[in-house]
Amino acid sequence: MAILEVIRLYLGTKGNLTEEEVPLGVSLVITVGSVMLSVYFLVWETYVLKADAIINIILLFTYGLEGMLQIIAIAAFVR
């Protein structure tokens, strides 16, 4: 998951700074994979601490916010 995060953040930053849609789109696709891993750690893992649940809920919220902002940025760059 850490490797996915590094790649996702690099592509998101690169796409935002260069105002290109492709790196932002790839970052958005990788975000979906990260969300799936986070849901796995939250729901399907055998033993989940309350702290794990809180951290994963915050992480899912920030993924959602980042996803919406990436979609808005891609729409702005396409014009």
Score class of each variant (00 low, 15 high):
T13S: 03
K14Q: 00
A53R: 04
V78N: 12
L24E: 08
L9M: 02
W44V: 09
I7E: 04
V48I: 11
L42I: 05
L17E: 10
E66Y: 15
V32T: 12
I72Y: 15
I72W: 11
I7Y: 02
A51E: 03
L59P: 00
S34P: 01
G25R: 13
E20K: 14
F77R: 00
L60F: 10
L24D: 10
I3R: 02
T18A: 14
L59C: 07
T13F: 08
V35H: 03
K50C: 00
E20A: 13
W44E: 11
V22R: 14
R79L: 13
V29H: 09
F61P: 04
D52T: 08
L60E: 04
E19I: 01
V78H: 12
V78R: 14
G64T: 05
I54R: 01
F61K: 08
I71V: 15
Y10E: 07
L65W: 10
D52H: 05
L9T: 07
L37V: 08
E5Y: 03
V78A: 11
I54L: 07
V43W: 15
L17R: 06
T31D: 08
M1G: 08
V39A: 15
F41T: 02
L69R: 01
I57W: 07
G64I: 09
I3M: 07
L28F: 10
R8S: 09
K50Q: 03
K50S: 01
G67K: 01
V22F: 15
Q70M: 15
L49S: 10
I71P: 13
D52I: 01
T18D: 11
V26F: 06
M68Q: 09
L65H: 09
V39D: 03
G25A: 13
A73Y: 07
T31A: 10
I54M: 04
G25D: 12
I74V: 15
Y47Q: 04
Y40G: 11
L24S: 02
Y47I: 11
V26M: 11
V78L: 10
W44R: 03
L4D: 10
A75Q: 13
E19K: 14
F77E: 00
A2N: 01
F77L: 06
A75P: 12
E19Q: 13
I71D: 03
L42E: 03
K50M: 09
D52E: 09
E21S: 13
V43I: 15
L28A: 15
G64S: 12
S38V: 10
Q70R: 13
L24F: 09
T46E: 14
L49E: 04
A76E: 14
V35R: 03
I57Q: 05
T62W: 07
Y40F: 13
L9K: 02
I72V: 12
L11A: 09
V29T: 14
S38H: 01
L42H: 05
V39E: 05
E45T: 12
V43S: 02
M68L: 14
G15I: 06
T18C: 00
Y40M: 08
M68T: 06
M68Y: 14
V6A: 02
N16D: 09
L9D: 07
I30N: 06
K14W: 10
R8D: 07
R79K: 12
I3Q: 05
N56P: 04
L11V: 07
I72P: 02
F41I: 03
